[in-house]
């Protein structure tokens, strides 16, 4: 197998498989896409499923990004510090910046999960406010999760370069730190939008 970063692996094959499964399995085989069936499917899905998925993605993706960033930074930092031990304590800041993206995810996950309230479907049909809340929490979780995933990778890569350049020339540290701070701010955008989106949550329709 070619490496995992090849577009064949992470784009073309999954998209083709998904499309084939979709065409085969959804509803009436006489129609290409059976919209009635799809409507029934999504209407019957519990909003608690979407809420739980949103919370899980918010924290899971953020931590994936943070962990990814930390190992990118960490492996370079450990190697560079063998020759120039003075860089270790300064460059822990890069690791902390990566860690921050995980904390964003945890914060948003906590905010989201406190918004979940108990409602019941009437005759098997969910109230439209409950549906709205489920999708709002899901969207908010996805926004925050993916923003923090890429933010963590970005900070990790910059942090790795920061460690290497600090080892060669200590005047570069502050300059690269500025880049890193801006990279770290990307995750905050996801957090802000996520919190705004979750403001729409009203499970029973009563504001």
């Amino acid at each position: 197998m070619k490496d995992l970063t090849h577009p064949l692996v992470w784009f073309y094959i999954p998209v083709t498989l998904t499309w084939i499964c979709f065409c085969i399995s959804v509803g009436n085989p006489a129609k290409f896409i059976d919209y009635d069936w799809l409507w029934l499917l999504f209407r019957s899905m519990s909003p608690y499923f979407w809420s739980a998925l949103g919370v899980a993605l918010a924290v899971g993706m953020s931590i994936l990004g943070a962990a990814w960033g930390i190992f990118i930074t960490g492996s370079s930092l450990v190697g560079a510090a063998i020759r120039v031990p003075r860089i270790t304590s300064k460059n822990l800041i890069s690791v902390i910046f990566c860690e921050a993206t995980a904390i964003y995810g945890v914060i948003v996950a906590i905010i989201l999960q406190t918004k979940i309230e108990y409602v019941q479907p009437v005759d098997g049909v969910w109230d439209r406010y409950a549906m709205l809340s489920g999708y709002a929490i899901f969207g908010s979780g996805v926004t925050c999760g993916f923003a923090n995933l890429v933010c963590g990778m970005c900070v990790g890569i910059v942090g790795s370069s920061c460690a290497l350049s600090d080892a060669q020339n200590s005047t570069l540290f502050v300059k690269i730190l500025v880049v890193e701070i801006f990279g770290s701010a990307l995750g905050l955008f996801g957090v802000i939008i996520g919190i705004i989106m979750s403001g729409a949550v009203t499970w029973s329709g009563a504001k």
Binding site: I72, S75, S76, V78, G79, A80, V84, L164, A167
Partner: peptide
């Protein structure tokens, strides 16, 4: 950038240390 350091990040920074 995303996968290089999994295996080779440590050695790359070692070799940069030797270079200095």
């Amino acid at each position: 950038m995303m996968s290089f350091n999994i295996k080779d990040g440590f050695l790359e920074s070692i070799v940069r240390g030797h270079r200095s």
